[in-house]
């Protein structure tokens, strides 16, 4: 006798009811607090830095292929547009680095989770101070003071 004979007494197994996964209209945006938005920013800045670094490694590697081409590329870094781009890059790295330290503290410091919100505002504070020091210098650099 087959082992599963008991199940023959039960009604024929039915295919599970199909639940269509609905798409629209979308639900509301989840209203997370500092923790969620710092994560969103961390990922955006992390990915942005990654793509910059990728391009930067490629253009630096160019020096081995053709020093002239390398010089041409590096010259474009001196244009005002790139100068402003550097401000964005520094802003992204600064946020990512400060917030990265906050995340390390959340994971490894026993009271990190408790103070995460305070630490987030400390991150923003440090970030503003760093940019306040960097941006005027960079602007002088770009537009020659």
């Amino acid at each position: 006798m087959p082992e599963k004979s008991a199940s023959n007494l039960v009604a024929e197994p039915q295919s599970p009811p199909k639940i269509r996964s609905p798409k629209r209209p979308a639900g509301t945006l989840y209203r997370g607090k500092e923790g969620m938005w710092s994560w969103v920013l961390h990922r955006i800045t992390g990915v942005a830095i990654y793509f910059f670094l990728l391009v930067h490694i490629l253009d630096t590697a160019l020096v081995r292929v053709s020093p002239e081409a390398y010089n041409a590329v590096i010259d474009t870094y001196k244009t005002p547009l790139m100068g402003l781009g550097e401000i964005a890059l520094v802003a992204a790295i600064a946020f990512h680095a400060f917030n990265g330290l906050r995340i390390i503290l959340i994971d490894f410091w026993a009271f990190g989770a408790k103070h995460q919100r305070t630490m987030f505002w400390v991150v923003i504070g440090l970030w503003v101070v760093l940019l306040a020091a960097f941006i005027p210098r960079q602007l002088m650099h770009i537009f020659g003071g």
Partner: peptide, 9 residues
């Protein structure tokens, strides 16, 4: 876990 704290909230 990416420590977004949505769960705690």
């Amino acid at each position: 876990c990416r420590t977004t704290f949505n769960c705690t909230d």
